[in-house]
Design a protein around this nucleic acid. Structure first.
Lengths: 209, 209
DNA sequence: TAGATTGTTAATCGATTAACAATC
DNA sequence: TAGATTGTTAATCGATTAACAATC
């Protein structure tokens, strides 16, 4: 029974399923039951079946799930076969590290360009991605619609940059600055990587063991 | 009414409160009610009061909360005044970026050292943090107990490295590799930054807008 | 066929929100 | 004092788990 509104809890488990299924594929496992999958991932079989049932019927009674097929289905749900386009704003240490190491294409993203204000990086090419001056950003977006902008810029300019990009039609942000961004428009999506928040929860758990 | 077991949902909101209160402090705001705080953070006043009540009574009827005081209390709960010690394993692009830019001390962490296998970085000092050879790790840990190890290493060696460190007594991991780490020992804490999972949830939301 | 396992409905559990007496 | 706002109890909502008929 396909559901209309999928809860955030379910969505956040999808990438984990996808990861686990990719691993099972690589290990040559052909079929798996919700029970075995649950054991490997430390979640209940019930939850797995409930989660999947939000999107369709991918299994077979008495058999379980075909690993490769299920992986493809979840990948499809996540949009990995959509060839999303992405640019990066801010090629400092972190931006550079992501361009260099993060396998964007494995998540279905093509990195079209990066932008920065520093003359030291403008004009360089990092892992096949050209770095342009910030002044060229508006013009670039006219010809190259992008689905996601990665924000690896200083906090101080984060909201202004985001607002500017929203005005230019950008609807998706992968935000690495440790602030909550906001938008007037309702259909703009922010996904945050809050390093400090993450470390502080670890700090809490250590301090209150 | 202090609670025994605090739910993960509550814990994950604490850093956000801390961040918002720090901001309010900087803006010179002296007092705030749960209602106003909720408006700024887009959560209900009820939830805020429930959350705080897990840890104690920090407000005053008819007045609200003293911002600076509340910030200090939450910081204390999070352990920012515990002076936790931390080392990093893996000084590649990402590790280097974190050492260079991430304000560990603001979260109450002292970075004692970093370790890598590459001769290119061994012996260097990044932002006052010395980089040692991996072979010196065991010896180092004998003299320098650490609370948290940052894992910015390739996936392929992540679980083995973690297991080794757990045997040496390490109880906290800030894991940047995109795999689920596990431990036999029950009191070992893992906090994961799964870049790919994060981007995939954004991909989902864009694809299913 | 018999055993296994699904998708779904019902039951339970936990988290969020509402309400309100207490009190600054 | 009167108004405001807390901390907490009760009500609601949503998410997880259990149960089971359907069926491969």
């Amino acid at each position: 029974m396909r559901k209309e509104n999928i809860s955030d809890a379910v969505i956040r488990r999808l990438p984990r399923y996808y990861r686990q299924l990719t691993d099972l594929c690589n290990r040559g496992v052909v079929r798996i039951s919700s029970h075995s999958l649950g054991q490997e991932m430390n979640i209940t079989a019930s939850q797995i079946r409930q989660d999947f049932s939000c999107f369709g019927e991918f299994g077979q009674q008495g058999y379980g799930y075909n690993v490769e097929e299920l992986r493809a289905e979840i990948g499809h749900i996540l949009g990995v076969d959509n060839n999303h386009h992405l640019i990066m704003i801010g090629v400092g240490n972190l931006g550079h590290a992501l361009l260099q190491n993060f396998p964007f294409s494995q998540s279905g993203f093509t990195v079209d360009a990066a932008f920065d204000v520093s003359p030291a990086v403008i004009g360089t090419v990092v892992n096949n991605v050209p770095v342009y001056a910030m002044s060229e950003l508006d013009h670039f977006l006219q010809d190259h619609p992008v689905d996601v902008v990665v924000l690896t810029i200083p906090q101080s300019v984060a909201q202004d940059t985001a607002s500017h990009l929203i005005n230019l039609g950008v609807k998706g942000f992968w935000n690495f600055t440790n602030i909550e961004l906001s938008s007037q428009l309702p259909d703009v999506q922010f996904e945050n990587i809050h390093f400090a928040d993450s470390l502080l929860t670890l700090s809490y758990r250590i301090a209150n063991r």
